[in-house]
């Protein structure tokens, strides 16, 4: 109701403004002076406003950026994260300079050269030297940006890591993430989407012995700090986006193909809580590709542990083989329907 009232007031204010302007116009006509399309007063008024506007623009660019400096580009928690952030700072320095110089020139020119009586514009159709300068200078700056940018890109996406990574599969479906560790053999068992039935959520081929020691977790998954990780990303239904902003990681998951990501976490969750001054801080895996009505709430916690904590945690997890055995047991007692119903209720609640 309050909002409607506010809208109404603004609307009325505009109507009043319109009427006032009409009156001013009519008064001018009554006084009978012949009007040009744009009066001298119009030019002065708008020219002055351009300077005011320039201050507004710089204000709205700089002040909120300063106010929210702790919320933007939070500390990178992966090995390559710092190099991406450095590139970001470099790029912002370049575009910031370009932005402030050109905007200042634009608005100062708009103010300074507004039409005055008895002046004539300067006929200046072109100048090859100037054109050359502002072709070459941006070219040089851009060359630097391209070379710097591509070297970071190559390092993050293409270079093979020096050490052998832990292999983890991140599996996505509407609206849930599931992680699968490759286990002691560090090899993921094969899978087929045709096997995604009932309890076998990932469609794992149980006849493939490599899958025996695989460990499947949902809700949250753990990573050891300072160890290279390789994610294999999969989707069972639509596109999803695996987005881990604090690690500066992002990659879509695509049904029908496996996409890859590699990185090394360098700060444990506990240390990060200290850095962020937030006891409840958790690393998150978000979905960042529109995937349906609960897209905005498709998440999984990531816990970065010390090596020892990680080893303890992973020991407590059940392997695919043992889990399958228990599940088979449950099926016999026919309670699988109950769990299915419970699952459904849980999803509905979400």
């Amino acid at each position: 109701m309050m909002n409607c009232l506010i809208l109404l007031v603004i609307f009325l204010a505009i109507i009043v403004l319109v009427r006032l302007m009409k009156i001013v116009d009519l008064a001018g006509e009554l006084r009978g002076h012949v009007e040009e399309e744009v009066t001298h007063a119009d030019n002065q008024f708008n020219a002055f406003f351009f300077i005011l506007f320039m201050l507004f623009l710089f204000g709205i660019t700089v002040i909120p950026t300063y106010m929210y400096r702790n919320y933007m580009m939070t500390p990178p928690a992966s090995e390559h994260g710092q190099s991406i952030d450095n590139l970001m700072y470099f790029t912002f320095a370049v575009i910031g300079i370009a932005f402030f110089i050109t905007q200042t020139l634009l608005f100062v020119f708009a103010y300074k050269y507004h039409a005055k009586k008895d002046t004539k514009a300067f006929y200046y159709p072109h100048n090859n030297k100037l054109e050359l300068i502002w072709t070459i200078v941006p070219s040089i700056v851009l060359t630097a940006m391209i070379i710097y940018g591509l070297s970071v890109w190559k390092n993050v996406m293409m270079d093979a890591p020096a050490e052998k990574p832990i292999v983890i599969e991140l599996f996505s479906k509407q609206f849930k993430w599931i992680a699968r560790y490759a286990g002691t053999d560090n090899e993921l068992g094969s899978f087929s989407y045709k096997k995604i039935i009932g309890v076998n959520e990932l469609g794992i081929d149980s006849s493939d012995t490599r899958s025996n020691d695989d460990i499947i977790v949902s809700g949250e998954f753990h990573l050891p700090v300072n160890r290279q990780v390789e994610f294999h990303l999969r989707s069972q239904d639509v596109l999803h986006g695996a987005f881990m902003p604090y690690f500066r990681l992002q990659m879509n998951t695509v049904p029908g193909m496996t996409t890859m990501l590699k990185f090394k976490p360098i700060i444990t969750t506990n240390d990060m809580r200290g850095i962020m001054k937030d006891d409840k801080f958790d690393y998150l895996l978000l979905c960042n590709k529109i995937c349906g009505s609960s897209h905005y709430n498709m998440q999984m916690n990531i816990v970065v542990d010390t090596e020892a904590d990680f080893n303890n945690w992973i020991k407590e997890q059940k392997t695919f083989k043992s889990e399958e055995a228990t599940k088979a047991e449950i099926t016999k007692t026919d309670s699988v329907k109950v769990t299915a119903v419970l699952e459904a209720v849980k999803i509905e609640k979400k």
Binding site: N43, N46, T102, L106, F109, Y113, H114, A115, A121, Y124
Partner: peptide, 14 residues
């Protein structure tokens, strides 16, 4: 830059 130079020393009718 060409737009900026067009404005430079013009007689801008706003």
């Amino acid at each position: 830059f060409n737009y900026l130079t067009t404005l430079w020393k013009g007689n801008l009718r706003l």
